[in-house]
């Protein structure tokens, strides 16, 4: 695909428009919004984690509104069944008194799917999302249905320490491009949030981006070049999370049970390209890699008992890995 300066400018404009529009409903969380946008432009799924009340659902709903895309929300509960997510075949009466099976599509058939509190459903139901998240298709019975494009799942979850939660299986975690931690707002932000939500009605949101636009942005950003040293840097980051790798960092050796899958490297590079464009560059820099390394890797490797017992976080491990590689 031949990319010109105008295309790049359009990407930046689209991102700016969306961020500006989302900011009407969201106070602060600019970095979070930027990271969600990067993930959407890259065509990936996002897992938002945070305690209740931090605006996770509101953010996703806002994004659904500002983009001219079909939006659906699934509230995950312990009794939610896979068919409730993907849909099911139902028997319908026909005119000749016979009966036919007809597929009744579930809420997954949408461009933006909000999987709210995803870790409250059982692993069986969580697994119903696997095919949709990776292949963008759904198979019911013998039939495979293609999901509309663009498609991405924006899931929210409460920290697993909370009551009534089921940890997501590693295979499903790996299918999220980014895992974003939703931080608690600062004092000023909290003041604004309270003021905004208690004084007047929410501002009207406009649809500022279309599905085609998002698909186009995805194709444009793929053309951004990346230098070999930068690419190697990203690969080294992923390899360093493997305790058995020769590139393994000391911290990973000590605290990591198993490291990131190759999807981690793909996620870093694809999102780093988008971040570079949004920063006004035509090339990927080390700082882009470092920026996206946290959301792209933090859910892809798992701590061992020692790491968990010492209260080590995956972000801390990533920080030390980055510092370790920078020293070399």
């Amino acid at each position: 695909m031949e990319v010109n300066e105008k295309d790049i400018k359009n990407v930046i404009d689209a991102a700016t428009r969306i961020e500006k529009e989302v900011a009407k409903h969201m106070v602060g969380q600019k970095d979070l919004i930027r990271q969600v946008l990067i993930s959407i432009f890259a065509g990936g799924n996002v897992l938002l984690e945070g305690v209740p009340g931090l605006g996770k659902t509101r953010l996703v709903k806002t994004l659904g509104k500002v983009m001219d895309l079909q939006f659906s929300r699934i509230q995950f509960t312990p009794d939610l069944m896979p068919a409730d997510v993907v849909g099911t075949n139902i028997i319908t009466k026909s005119d000749d008194k016979g009966g036919n099976f007809k597929f009744q599509s579930g809420p997954i058939f949408s461009n933006i799917v909000l999987a709210d509190e995803i870790n409250r459903a059982t692993p069986k139901t969580q697994s119903a999302l696997l095919e949709a998240m990776q292949e963008k298709t759904v198979t019911v019975g013998n039939t495979t249905y293609t999901l509309p494009q663009p498609f991405f799942v924006l899931a929210t979850q409460n920290p697993i320490e909370m009551e009534g939660t089921y940890p997501l299986p590693e295979a499903q975690m790996d299918r999220f491009l980014f895992k974003l931690n939703v931080p608690f707002p600062s004092l000023g932000e909290l003041v604004d949030i309270v003021s905004m939500t208690t004084s007047k009605e929410d501002a009207e949101l406009e649809r500022v981006a279309t599905g085609e636009e998002i698909l186009s942005i995805r194709n444009i950003t793929r053309e951004i070049p990346i230098a070999k040293p930068v690419l190697e840097y990203a690969i080294k980051l992923v390899l360093a999370t493997h305790p058995t790798s020769e590139h393994c960092a000391e911290v990973a050796k000590k605290y990591v049970r198993f490291g990131s899958s190759p999807r981690g490297a793909q996620a870093i590079v694809s999102t780093a390209k988008i971040r570079a464009v949004l920063e006004g560059r035509y090339n990927v820099a080390f700082e882009d890699i470092k920026y996206v390394a946290y959301p792209a890797l933090r859910h892809r490797f798992f701590l061992n008992f020692e790491g968990m017992s010492e209260g080590i976080t995956t972000d801390k491990v990533i920080s030390e890995i980055i510092a370790d590689i920078d020293k070399q």
């Binding site: 031949e2 070049p225 230098a227 070999k228 560059r281 035509y282 090339n283």
Partner: peptide
Amino acid sequence: KERLITAYQLQNEEGTIIQMQRED
């Protein structure tokens, strides 16, 4: 921010985005 190393590595390649990158 790795603009030069990217340009250096792409010195033998041609394309709009490459040209834009060099100019940048």
